[in-house]
Design a protein around this nucleic acid. Sequence first.
DNA 1: TGCCTGCGAAGTGCATGCACTTTTATAAAT
DNA 2: ATTTATAAAAGTGCATGCACTTCGCAGGCA
Lengths: 234, 234
Amino acid sequence: MAAGNEANPRSRSTAVREGTSVDDMVTRLSQEIVAGDWPPGTRLTAAGIAQRFAVSRTPVREAFGHLFAMGLVERRPNRGVVTASIDEQELFAMFEAMAELEAACARFCALRMPLAERRALQALHESARAWLDESHRAQYSAFNDRFHSALYEGSRSDHLIELTRATRARLQPFRHTQFAIERRTLHSFDEHAAIVAAVVAGDAAAAAEAARAHVLSVARSARCYVEARSESAP
Amino acid sequence: MAAGNEANPRSRSTAVREGTSVDDMVTRLSQEIVAGDWPPGTRLTAAGIAQRFAVSRTPVREAFGHLFAMGLVERRPNRGVVTASIDEQELFAMFEAMAELEAACARFCALRMPLAERRALQALHESARAWLDESHRAQYSAFNDRFHSALYEGSRSDHLIELTRATRARLQPFRHTQFAIERRTLHSFDEHAAIVAAVVAGDAAAAAEAARAHVLSVARSARCYVEARSESAP
DNA sequence: TGCCTGCGAAGTGCATGCACTTTTATAAAT
DNA sequence: ATTTATAAAAGTGCATGCACTTCGCAGGCA
């Protein structure tokens, strides 16, 4: 159902003490869940995953712990883990929280970003003009990631950045689809422009409001997408 | 150093399948770390903890994973876990994020709390008058927890509530001490009053600002406390 | 004396086995 | 035919063993 079999029997001696076998599994599994390879509710058996990654069940259980902490799977005592399902209400709640987090980041940017960094943010934003056309969807998506990262980092508030990134990661599969919607790229660019203008002007309230509006706008697009998908395959 | 030895050899048969041995350890260890029983940087050995809780090292490792996810310990590959140390800068970053989170909660309260709940919040706040005196410090602290919880729940935004609670938990040991400071209780009460007034009035911006100011005020108290402690025992 | 080197203890990380629980398949009874 | 009882299969959760890594310390060398 998901990616192929990685049971690559590289000489055991190299696998031992690799030190990252758990992290490796966490990375791959989270990517797959987030990408939608495993439909919500899919049961993940320790033995199955262990075989796939050619390790024993012990590290797999540890990896499950990480995935649980990330909110990507649900744990039921004595009954294993299943991939988490996000219903529409939870999804909107997460976008709502995301909007507040990004608003806080934008607010701090407006308050304390150094002048050079404000100019850099503006330049980054302007650079996206080249990717506005539908044919450069991938490039615009990559730019979008950089833009939002710059907004987070600009807040200079490590814990806020951490929370924002974590929430963003969980929303990844739903944000990712937004640019499939007609003209969304243009709206996104305009909304970014409002954020940048407020940050450059040092207007904290306006920056927060613009960032909030932007995320909620993305949320509406995602909601359309989810509704469309759930109708097509109920 | 921390609590006593729980190696209670209850008949193995009851311990088996208890289903909660890991959760139990996580709860206890997190409480102890948060309470400061284990000074930051203390090394936690799997064997030691296993002996203390009368389990094997496997569930202990799983518990370590949870503690790591909570940010209470740091993990170094092949070198075990040590209790996390929060330096002053990180501490302030967390309070800063907390201020934004509570501001967002207060904002949503002002926007969407039902009338009955606003009245309940006001009543809860008023009830604290009875505990303003220094001699009722414990009662005021308990009230304070309820008040903030009501503010989170009132936001009606599950993910935001989750983030706020998680951050609050990590700040617990530092918030906890605030009421040791002279007259802090009175300031706290006044700040709460401002939040309540804005929420009741439905003024989102004022509610957010009042909540933010309140948390930052707590942060200043905590900072004084940390500075005092680090001077006394360097 | 100061720096490297190799040994040993301590401790992590993973594999495996087993007891127990849940689930599924099968058989009996109404 | 449907429901209930039962047994086997599948799978979780923990204990234990062992290979490997790290760290501390004594002895060799300059």
